[in-house]
């Protein structure tokens, strides 16, 4: 098992390198001259040239990439000119908040998605199945950013049960309970689409598994129906659903961009949107890299989890 994890870890290296090349190339492709952008359009050509040399922009792209990669590996992602602080500091601070939000959402969507899928499959064509199918349709069709607004209107404005924005209360905030109250609405909003997708796939996987010979064997040896479904069939369905949960982490990490904007969550998504508006490209670069890398690791995690469940993959 450890050998397998090690191998999979090694296999992520080329992917991460590929990601870094794409991100670097994209930023290098941006039209316009960074030096002029920094110094303003009234800069003298000499000053521009000096800055270009300082920034290493007079060298070949490959050289630039290698220097950039070297710095990156030492944790240096450059300096955000808009915030005037190191990009790495800002990015990792914000990423923590996003992880909290995304983690909570993943927990919610895995739990409820699996549950709803199993319930639908067991009551196939019955009223439970119809309700789940209907909710799934609503779930995948609802724009999450709009759903967030609706939830704010209902729970924060009308009922005043939960705070509408932020991660902690501004006055006297802090502590896990405060965090949970602030987390509830954005985490639920972010989880809705993924829950629907997971529920739909779990239903299909369960129906597929329930037709298998080994389920008949379980019934033939007198195992209770509850055990047949929740132990025999569910474990097999899980093997098919885990990679989907892995892919959903990508949608959750990406969807966080909307949700963080709607709920003013101090995460990396909102940071990116702001950075794009202010053309703070180094910040964009750092943010995109970190989130993309984390997605690679989430997928790795899903792979390992799948292997733990299914001994045939070892």
């Amino acid at each position: 098992m450890w050998l397998y994890i090690g191998k999979r870890l090694l296999a992520t290296v080329p992917i991460l390198l590929g990601l870094s090349v794409i991100v670097f190339a994209m930023m290098a492709a941006i039209p316009g001259d960074p030096a002029t952008a920094i110094l303003g359009s009234y800069a003298t050509p000499e000053n521009v040239e000096r800055l270009n040399r300082q920034l290493g922009l007079d060298r070949s792209l490959v050289e630039q990439y290698l220097t950039w990669l070297g710095n990156l590996l030492q944790g240096d992602m450059g300096r955000s000119y808009a915030l005037n602080r190191p990009v790495a500091d800002e990015v990792f601070e914000r990423f923590g908040a996003t992880l909290v939000l995304a983690g909570a959402s993943l927990l919610l969507c895995s739990l409820f998605g699996l549950l709803a899928g199993v319930i639908a499959a067991v009551g196939q064509f019955g009223w439970r199945d119809r309700i789940v199918t209907f909710l799934v349709l609503i779930g995948i069709s609802t724009p999450s950013f709009w759903l967030g607004l609706l939830l704010i209107m209902l729970f924060a404005v009308e009922l005043q049960w939960l705070p509408a924005s932020g991660m902690f209360a501004i006055y006297g905030g802090g502590g896990p309970l405060d965090l949970l109250a602030h987390l509830a609405l954005p985490a639920i909003t972010l989880a809705v689409v993924a829950t629907a997708v997971i529920a739909r796939l779990t239903r299909t996987a369960m129906l597929e598994v329930l037709r298998q010979d080994y389920v008949r064997t379980a019934r033939a040896k007198g195992v209770s129906e509850r055990r047949v479904i929740y132990r025999h069939a569910f474990k097999s369905a899980l093997v098919a659903v885990i990679p989907v949960i892995g892919i959903q982490t990508g949608f959750v990490l990406g969807g966080a961009v909307y949700i963080e904007t709607v709920f003013q969550w101090p995460g990396i998504g909102r940071m990116l949107v702001n950075a794009i508006s202010t053309r703070d490209l180094l910040l964009v670069q750092g943010g995109v890299l970190v989130v993309a890398a984390s997605y690679v690791f989430f997928n790795l995690l899903a792979d390992v989890a799948q292997t733990l469940v299914d001994p045939r993959l070892r």
Binding site: M26, M27, A29, F251, G254, V257, V284, V288, V291
Partner: peptide, 17 residues
């Protein structure tokens, strides 16, 4: 490699460029 990026994030990066 394109799919290794979270879906919306890549779109954001492209818009940034």
């Amino acid at each position: 490699l394109v799919m290794a990026f979270p879906y919306i994030l890549l779109a954001l990066a492209i818009v940034a460029v």
